[in-house]
C-alpha cells in the first residue's frame, strides 16, 4: 500500500494519519504538500483533519483550490482511493467529490468526545473488516459536522447505499438522541457513488492501535490494505 497524507496550511491530524499508515499498517506512506502537483504513483490519498486555511470562508472551501486538489480530483475520477477525515470530509464535499455539505453543529458547540457509530455498509472498500451493523466507538472533534443534503440527492444516496456510518446508541439504535451535531439521519460517514471516496467526521486514526486502548478505527485502514493487496 502506497499512501499519501495531504498537508494543507492548518492541517493538524496529518502526523496521526501518517503514523497509523506507516507504523501500524506498514504502508509506504508519505506527506504530500498542498502545493504539490504530483501524486507519485500512490494508491491511497488521505485528507486529514484540522483547520485547512484557518477554516476561512467555509471549512474546506479554500482547500479545494489547492494545486494538490486538482490531482486528487483526477485521481478520484480514475478510481483511486481517497479518505477524508473531519476537515478532509469537509474538503471533499466542498470539492464536489462527495455530495452534500457540512454546516455548523446544531448546538453551536465544538464537540470533542467518543461517540458510537453503526456500520451501515460493510461492503465498501473501507469497511470489509467490519460486520454489517457493528457498533464502533470512535472519537469526534469538530464544530462543523452537521451533514446536510437535498432530498433528491439523499434518495439517490440511499439507493446506492452510500451511507457508511451513522451515530447511534451503544446498542446500535439510530435516533435523534444519539445525534451529536444535527446531521441528517445521523450521518457520520458516506462514500461516493463509485465507492472509491470516503468522507467521515469521526477520527479512526485516533483509535487504531492497542496503545490507544481502543482499536475500533483499525478496521478501516485494514480494509483498505486488504483491498489494495
Amino acid at each position: 500500500m502506497k499512501a499519501g497524507v495531504v498537508r494543507f496550511p492548518g492541517s493538524n491530524c496529518d502526523r496521526d494519519c501518517l503514523h497509523v499508515l506507516s507504523d501500524v499498517m506498514g504502508a509506504d506512506a508519505r506527506f504530500l504538500w498542498h502545493k504539490d502537483h504530483d501524486l507519485k504513483g500512490l494508491d491511497l490519498v488521505v485528507l486529514p483533519g484540522g483547520f485547512s486555511y484557518g477554516d476561512y470562508l467555509r471549512c474546506g472551501a479554500i482547500a479545494k483550490f489547492s494545486p494538490i486538489m486538482s490531482e486528487v480530483m483526477e485521481f478520484a475520477d480514475k478510481g483511486g482511493l481517497v479518505v477524508g477525515i473531519c476537515n478532509g470530509f469537509q474538503v471533499l464535499t466542498e470539492s464536489g467529490l462527495l455530495p452534500g455539505a457540512l454546516i455548523r453543529n446544531k448546538g453551536l458547540k465544538f464537540i470533542c468526545k467518543y461517540v458510537n457509530l453503526r456500520v451501515d455498509n460493510a461492503d465498501t472498500r473501507f469497511t470489509t473488516e467490519y460486520k454489517q451493523s457493528q457498533v464502533l466507538t470512535v472519537p469526534i472533534a469538530h464544530g462543523e459536522g452537521c451533514y446536510m443534503v437535498d432530498d433528491a440527492t439523499w434518495a439517490e444516496m440511499l439507493q446506492y447505499n452510500q451511507i457508511v456510518f451513522r451515530y447511534c446508541s451503544p446498542d446500535g439504535e439510530v435516533s435523534e438522541l444519539y445525534n451529536p451535531n444535527g446531521a441528517r439521519d445521523n450521518v457520520a460517514g458516506i462514500v461516493n457513488k463509485a465507492g472509491n471516496v470516503l468522507g467521515m467526521m469521526p477520527h479512526p486514526e485516533r483509535c487504531a492501535e492497542d496503545l490507544m486502548q481502543n482499536k475500533d478505527g483499525y478496521g478501516l485502514f485494514a480494509s483498505v490494505k486488504n483491498f489494495l493487496g
Binding site: 455548523r104 453543529n105 446536510m148
Partner: peptide, 10 residues
Amino acid sequence: GVLDPQGQAI
C-alpha cells in the same frame, strides 16, 4: 430551510 444555529442563538 438550512439550519442556522448561530442565528437562533442571537
